[in-house]
Write a protein that binds this DNA or RNA. Sequence first.
DNA 1: ATTGAAATTTGGTCGCC
DNA 2: GGCGACCAAATTTCAAT
Lengths: 155, 155
Amino acid sequence: MDRTDRRLVAALRADGRASYAELARAVGLSASSVHERVTKLETAGVITGYRAVVDPVSVGIGVTAIVGIEPGENGQDDPIAAALDATPEVESCYQVAGDNAFVVVVRVADIEELSQVLGRLRAIPGVARTRTTVVLSTVFEGRPRPDRPPTDGGS
Amino acid sequence: MDRTDRRLVAALRADGRASYAELARAVGLSASSVHERVTKLETAGVITGYRAVVDPVSVGIGVTAIVGIEPGENGQDDPIAAALDATPEVESCYQVAGDNAFVVVVRVADIEELSQVLGRLRAIPGVARTRTTVVLSTVFEGRPRPDRPPTDGGS
DNA sequence: ATTGAAATTTGGTCGCC
DNA sequence: GGCGACCAAATTTCAAT
């Protein structure tokens, strides 16, 4: 993971369909060198996949909610995590410190579906209660952090 | 947005680098038809981009926190949103209902950097306080919802 | 809209530096 | 590690339907 690798990762985070020729121009190497580096980054697990980013409204999941999952007194985390994993409306699932064992991001078509999903989340064994925060608007999301220039050690 | 478009979007959400030839095989059309459809989905704003998914630890952002931003009595939302946008460590920003005006996802290298970023967030004019939840582990994240088969009207 | 065919570009492998 | 060359495969354009 030298500077070139970091620049390649940053470029692919910004445009996951960039061609090796484009990446080569961006980092000043040949396409075959870039190909070898990117392959290594993929096999090393640094790059875990590529995804199209989609307008949620267009694909029928225009309503987003952030839901805290509070477990009961002696609730185990693992079966709760498995139940959340089995709920397709749960897009992301974080195990967290604090009152909630988990915070999940739920995406659904409308408020009615949100209500149904929240009912299912509450019905998960070991879940004592849920705390739901409805998203009014997504200001921005999943933004790639720009590649930071190497720290200048000072003059 | 017919059934074929939805299948293309689902396929590209699962693999953003899928070739047109692969997509064509998946939906049973020619590569050129798929190309035209995907181009239209892009220009229509249904597909907004393509991103490489990266292991956060490998790129030096192994610590994630979910931070609620509570505004003051007469704090305006727009300048707060602009300040959050100008903070590169803020990966996602949601305007929400409830006590917090915003919930943001922060990604940083370590707890020390988290502390610094939280200080900067609290220093944003109009922000009364922040509520931070540290992520202990990411169970899953940004999972594409599988394409749902068309609703059977029943027999 | 979809297609097949044509022209261009890219992906992926190899030997060499 | 990086490079240029190579060939198979893909992207992209286009006229016809």
